[in-house]
């Protein structure tokens, strides 16, 4: 006699469906190749830290409930005195931690930092060390902690499509921008506000020619050939960190130089957001009026 009181599961084993193609086509607002996604940046969000900032990126394909794709929060603790046991340092000791929240990406992240997070931390440290005027704080240290609340991934993408780690570039550029705002919020002297930007060489369709785009939302493109993340000091016109990887057609460095140039444009755009956000903090309400 069949059990009619309960809704029973199927008799045989089943496999959950995994879709190869996303349920929708990314038709939404077409982002121009030479613009970056909208950034929301706010400083002073964590009262207990000496400086903090929060950054959000707009998702151009706004059919997910939150319509954002990258959420970062950064706290800066310090500058504070080094412990007595620490050796003398003529400069501020900078330590950066980048951590994905366990739920930030499709693949769950553990609580311990894995190698990609440590790697991001080193990149961020390099980017910031050039901007901070380190010799104004001898014998002191500062901790910069960036938590990635939501990674820059397409949650509608099929499970079996590997992302090849291109989103790391976007995450890093976000980390640099948010950390720069948080450092300014903490009142640590910098030569300039550093900002991060990404340019990538992508093909939109399987047979379209490669083109350089700014701030690539990786899931929108058929293939990413190469990407370049740069940390830039606009008023000094200097680069503190550069991270390029990928495969360029052609042997010369011309295309590489062009990608760096394009990512500087993204940096300048991001820097404008940082400046506006900091102005907002200093003179609340004035900017909007």
């Amino acid at each position: 006699m069949a059990d009619r009181r309960r809704v029973n599961g199927p008799v045989g084993p089943t496999a959950p469906p995994v879709y190869n193609t996303a349920a929708h086509k990314p038709i939404a607002k077409e982002k121009a190749d030479n613009s970056i996604r909208k950034i929301f940046l706010k400083t002073g969000v964590t009262p207990s830290a000496s400086g903090s900032a929060y950054l959000e990126l707009e998702d151009p394909k706004a059919n997910s409930p939150s319509s954002t794709s990258l959420k970062l929060t950064c706290t800066v603790h310090g500058p504070r005195a080094l412990p007595r046991s620490a050796p003398f340092s003529p400069h501020i000791i900078l330590s950066t931690h980048v951590k994905y929240a366990p739920f930030a990406t499709k693949q769950r992240r553990g609580y311990l930092r894995d190698s990609s997070e440590r790697d991001l931390g080193v990149h961020l440290e390099t980017a910031l060390r050039g901007a901070i005027i380190a010799d104004r704080w001898p014998k002191s240290g500062v901790d910069i902690i960036v938590t990635i609340i939501e990674g820059d991934q397409d949650r509608n993408a099929p499970e079996n499509k590997s992302d090849e780690g291109w989103d790391m570039m976007n995450v890093l550029s976000g980390c640099i921008t948010v950390a720069s705002a948080a450092i300014a919020d903490a009142g640590i002297d910098c030569v300039d506000t550093v900002a991060g930007g990404v340019a990538a060489l992508v093909a939109r369709q399987p047979n379209s020619p490669p083109a350089i785009v700014l701030d690539p939302a990786v899931s929108e493109y058929h293939k990413v050939f190469a990407a370049c993340c740069v940390a830039y000091l606009p008023t000094r016109d200097e680069i503190t960190n550069i991270w390029f990887k990928g495969q360029l057609p052609g042997a010369d460095s011309m295309l590489y130089n062009r990608m760096v140039e394009r990512s500087l444009v993204a940096c300048r755009n991001a820097n404008r957001v940082v400046i506006t956000a900091l102005n907002e903090t200093v003179r609340p309400g004035k900017e909007s009026a």
Binding site: E125, T126, I239, N241, W243, F244, G246, Q247, Y256
Partner: peptide, 8 residues
């Protein structure tokens, strides 16, 4: 060219 990284 395959990759470029700044070393601190």
């Amino acid at each position: 060219l395959l990759s470029v990284r700044t070393i601190d």
